[in-house]
Amino acid sequence: MENKSFPYSELVMEHFSNPRNMGEIENASAVGNAGNPNCGDLMRLYLKIEDGIIIDAKFKTFGCGAAIASSSMLTEMLKGKRLEDALKISNQAVADALGGLPPVKIHCSVMAEEALKAAMEDYEKRKNS
């Protein structure tokens, strides 16, 4: 795995092997989907939000190693964050936190960012309804 020809960082492999916060949240405050199974990936992000703070984040993902690792890392970054700070998390921040992703896998971190945005939209919608 330390081989230079191997596409993933050790951290990516670690998150892929032992994904953090995997699962669903019952009575989640917000749920966001991103990706398309026809294109080989789908991420579902669950958030529990109280007083403007994300107190829990979980995910389920169908996808490659980078997709699962990006999902896992995103949930780690979200937990305990204020909503306005969470919104600032970019795909690049997720990729950087993982020690980088191969160029062909950048779209996996984009999926994580999109799932976050979708969850935030869902939260706004729920709040206003």
Binding site: M13, S17, F62, G65, A67
Partner: peptide, 14 residues
């Protein structure tokens, strides 16, 4: 069903 191919390859490789 429900599993992506590359994820399987990585898992088995490990």
């Amino acid at each position: 069903k429900g599993v992506e191919g590359e994820a399987m390859i990585l898992s088995l490789d490990m």
